[in-house]
């Protein structure tokens, strides 16, 4: 039999996108308590930006775009659209949230244990941005946020050392670093 790789049927993805769009609209409709869409547009602009970005991403996948490109352009687009009119502090916090989410995505998605460690480092750094932004904007006199960031740096260093040692010893026992194959304890 011919093992030709079947491309994604575009219509399925568009259908997914439509369902998602309807869900978001319904959510907005619930929140707006039956008022007009104007109200939703003014009060839930962020949510609309989200919905548009997600729908755009799904459509782009169905057109055959590569996923890193979609994630990068979507993340940058969402970030700029959401923070363009905000305060400086909210900008930093949003950036930190975005980097945290990217790290979370990488941690859940990747199979390589070393890359999982890298994603965790990314998440810890995102938290550091948060703390230092707070130190500058909320508590500039005795920069407590920077203190906590120092402690987080310490913990991150310890975590990296122990994590790498664990990965090393796992590699020694199973000669792989694929997370899906660490199932010795699976029952």
């Amino acid at each position: 039999m011919s093992l030709q790789v079947q491309k994604n049927p575009i219509m399925v993805n568009v259908a997914y996108a439509g369902i998602l769009f309807v869900c978001v609209c319904g959510f907005l409709g619930l929140l707006s308590n039956g008022k007009t869409t104007d109200w939703a547009m003014t009060n839930f602009l962020d949510l609309w930006i989200f919905a548009v970005a997600i729908v755009g991403g799904v459509v782009a996948i169905s057109m055959g775009a590569r996923s890193p490109f979609i994630i990068a352009s979507g993340a940058v687009g969402i970030f700029v659209a959401l923070t363009a009119t905000q305060d400086t502090l909210v900008r930093y916090l949003s950036l930190s949230a975005l980097l945290f989410a990217i790290g979370m995505y990488g941690m859940v998605k990747s199979r390589n244990a070393v890359r999982v460690l890298m994603s965790i480092e990314l998440m810890l750094n995102a938290v550091n941005i948060n703390l230092i932004a707070f130190a500058k904007f909320i508590d500039p006199a005795e920069v407590k946020g920077q203190l906590f960031a120092i402690f987080i740096l310490t913990v991150a260093a310890a975590e990296a050392a122990v994590g790498l040692a664990i990965v090393l010893s796992v590699y020694r026992n199973t000669s792989t670093v694929d997370m899906n194959k660490f199932d010795l304890l699976k029952w």
């Binding site: 305060d87 400086t88 949230a97 989410a101 979370m104 904007f137 909320i138 500039p140």
Partner: peptide
């Protein structure tokens, strides 16, 4: 994984926006 990522960003972002941050206007020394 994409769902997890989007959900975590959405949650944190909602938390950020639901708070009104009052910046103290001082400068860091």
């Amino acid at each position: 994984p994409a769902f997890v990522g989007i959900l975590s960003f959405f949650t944190i972002y909602t938390a950020i926006r639901s708070e009104s941050w009052i910046a103290s206007g001082e400068q860091v020394s």
